[in-house]
């Protein structure tokens, strides 16, 4: 199984959270919420591309509307493989950090 980079991981989480509503603008907002840092679309779409290539998400076109200059939305949806990858990422993260707490880190004890 291919691993996820940090940004990929955050984008996956954003898509998972948004469910049916996962498209560019919303994902960008979610990523901003999680990381507190603005990523612009070129970076985000590069990440989408990579995720699609890895088979973790797929994309669907929505209906065209007048709001977006007549352009269709592109919705992203997690695949089963993506879900597995996310789970694995979570497991790994928990293994890495284990029972370490921020409090403990600051005080220098387990």
């Amino acid at each position: 199984m291919k691993e996820l980079t940090k940004l990929e991981e955050v984008v996956m989480i954003a898509i998972w959270r948004l469910g049916d509503m996962a498209y560019g603008v919303e994902i960008k907002k979610q990523v901003y919420e999680i990381l507190g840092k603005e990523y612009f679309y070129n970076t985000l779409y590069t990440t989408f591309d990579q995720l699609i290539r890895k088979g973790f998400i797929n994309k669907n076109f929505g209906e065209p509307s007048s709001v977006r200059g007549g352009k269709r939305k592109v919705f992203f949806r997690m695949t089963e493989m993506g879900e597995l990858a996310l789970e694995e990422a979570f497991e790994r993260q928990s293994r890495v950090w284990g029972s370490i707490t921020l409090d403990g880190l600051q005080r220098g004890e387990l």
Binding site: Y23, G24, V25, K28, Y41, N42, Y45, F48, D49, K59, F61, V67, R68, G69, K71, R72, K73, V74
Partner: peptide, 24 residues
């Protein structure tokens, strides 16, 4: 200029997103 850097199959969603956020 922005579109120049982006692959064509994603282009529609991409520029749509920009326009949407722009209007917001």
């Amino acid at each position: 200029m922005l579109r120049l850097f982006y692959s064509s199959n994603m282009e529609e969603g991409y520029s749509g997103d920009i326009e949407e956020e722009f209007e917001e």
